[in-house]
Design a protein around this nucleic acid. Sequence first.
DNA 1: ACTGCTATATGATTTAGATCATAAAACCAG
DNA 2: CTGGTTTTATGATCTAAATCATATAGCAGT
Lengths: 197, 197
Amino acid sequence: MSMIPEELLTTFGARKIKLNKDEFLFAKDTEAHFYYQVSMGTVKMVNYNYDGQEFILGMFKAGQSFGEPPLFGHFPYPANAVAVEDCEICKLPKDNFFRLLEANFDIHRKFNYELSNRLRYKGMILSEVSSYPPEHRILTLVNYLKAMMPNQDLFTVPYTRQQLADMTGLRVETVIRTIKKMEQEGKIKLKSHKIVV
Amino acid sequence: MSMIPEELLTTFGARKIKLNKDEFLFAKDTEAHFYYQVSMGTVKMVNYNYDGQEFILGMFKAGQSFGEPPLFGHFPYPANAVAVEDCEICKLPKDNFFRLLEANFDIHRKFNYELSNRLRYKGMILSEVSSYPPEHRILTLVNYLKAMMPNQDLFTVPYTRQQLADMTGLRVETVIRTIKKMEQEGKIKLKSHKIVV
DNA sequence: ACTGCTATATGATTTAGATCATAAAACCAG
DNA sequence: CTGGTTTTATGATCTAAATCATATAGCAGT
């Protein structure tokens, strides 16, 4: 379930750090020195434009790693990492991370898998943001999120309208109105304001 | 320079195929059975919305591979592959590709590098498309394209305004007007209608 | 139960870029 | 050199979603 088992990370010298809600872990355009894996909580990768508008490039929960592409691809962070809620994060120095990979071929392969799936997500969202109206964007995102769940019964979308807006390139008001309209037309179901699929 | 040397591909049983301009190599939502690498020409990965609007997710030239994420990530093609001009493509069956990877650790690592850089590109474009006006989007794309060139002197952007539009989620007219305005304001230079940076 | 904060809701107005329409260059194959 | 196709150009109009402005509902902590 975890990208790398925490015991193994510890063996290679990982430390656990705490992060408060809204705290930054690293900033866009800085150099990457560590491998990070969420132990508890949620971290978002996010960009801000000049007037503070936010775009969320990814949400990462317990077991998931994030911010590795700059390690593999040798470029500065293309976005900021921010805690969405109080978090615990495993932090492993870059060199140790590569040593761990060399010693564990299966994990190395797992990263290929993981990166490919992130490309899938980004390509999907990119196609949506570039050419589809709000309703389509939201439905595509919601369906993707559900499809990613191991358990395939009722799934409650765990994001606020603001977060959905920031993931689809829309404004809150638009997301609120669109969700309300879709509910009235019976296209989606809500349970205490959260979308349930 | 090439993702995988063509001799090595041949050793593992690759075949070379020809593709005419505008011909499809594979279609969105179909299953991936082959590894592909451009030998000559240019291939684009592209999506179309209901009214034919195009969004280009990537352009691939000689030496570059494309369409591997579905092989690594076990999901159907998230976009179509179309020849931008007459092409020659190396085509290697999936199983042979994985055998080749196992036998060549360095190439396996190279894919990590490549996938990471594609994530960088997609994340960049996504942030642009979601929050920035035409001028910013075009400049960011152009600067990225230049930065990717090994040779760092004068670089001529090799795309039409239509293609730039399809890469930035804008309409042709908007790209034409924006480029013209930027040239008049001295923000970019043109040489026989092509942007030169 | 009250306070403060965050999330959802909804109307009115504005605007950037899409769309529509048409034309002139530029390029290319025969 | 020529006729056809593609690319660039430019004006006029339209529209979906952003923006602005408030309001209400929900919830977390004291």
